[in-house]
Simulated assay, not measured.
Amino acid sequence: MITNHKFAYRNVASKYYEFRPQDIDKAMDDFRQILEGRGLHLSGNMFFSILSDPQSEIMIAEIFLSVEEDSIKGLVSPEEEIRFRSYFTLSPMVMTRIMKDFDLESQKKYWKLVSYLQVNHLEQATPVFIEFKNSLSGIDYVEMSIGYSINGDNYNFS
């Protein structure tokens, strides 16, 4: 468990999706296709937040993709409900890694994060964020993080 974790990205587009957990790849592909179809260039960073109960049959998530462009104005219509942030940062967070068996390990790791917050008297300040990563040696893994505050203080979200 890593505490005082932070992540930050530039030029991030996001969109809300509802789907069955096993269909998350379809939602991510849909978002990729929308952005690329509007002429945006993806810079490779993808993450999402789980906004619903992680055990729900239907998941509500906000999917984030970073793009090379510093604006999406004029490229995406308001009806598509895509949000854009020139800078996206979260801190402090508690984070854990999942190196394999994501489907099996994600529930265990989620409850370990929640338990860590409770044991250390920290308040959950954000939904769970999932980041897809790749090591220098080419190994894919996932980081799962939750933002926290101490008595409602010390949390930065922008």
Score class of each variant (00 low, 15 high):
M1H: 10
M1W: 03
T3V: 09
N4V: 00
N4W: 01
A8E: 14
Y9G: 02
R10Q: 09
N11I: 02
A13N: 07
E18D: 13
E18F: 11
R20G: 02
P21V: 09
D23T: 00
I24Q: 13
D25L: 07
K26T: 07
A27N: 03
A27D: 07
M28W: 00
M28A: 06
D29P: 00
D29Q: 11
D30T: 14
F31G: 06
F31C: 07
R32E: 04
I34K: 12
L35F: 11
E36A: 12
G39Y: 04
G39H: 02
L40V: 13
H41V: 15
L42N: 07
S43Y: 00
G44R: 04
G44Q: 03
N45G: 00
M46P: 01
M46W: 06
F47V: 01
F47M: 12
S49P: 00
D53S: 08
D53W: 01
P54V: 03
Q55W: 06
I58L: 14
I60W: 02
A61L: 07
A61K: 02
E62T: 13
L65V: 07
V67L: 11
S71R: 10
G74W: 04
G74I: 04
L75Y: 14
V76F: 08
P78K: 06
E80H: 10
E80R: 10
E80Y: 07
I82W: 12
R83G: 15
R85F: 12
R85V: 08
S91Q: 06
P92S: 05
M93V: 03
M95Q: 14
T96C: 03
R97E: 15
I98Q: 13
K100Y: 09
L104H: 02
E105H: 04
E105M: 11
S106M: 10
S106F: 10
Q107I: 09
K108F: 05
K112Y: 08
L113R: 10
V114N: 09
V114F: 11
S115V: 01
Y116M: 07
Y116W: 15
V119Q: 11
V119I: 13
N120E: 04
Q124F: 00
A125L: 00
F129N: 08
I130H: 08
S137R: 12
I139P: 00
M144Y: 06
G147N: 06
Y148Q: 08
N154S: 10
N154H: 09
N156C: 10
N156E: 14
F157Y: 14
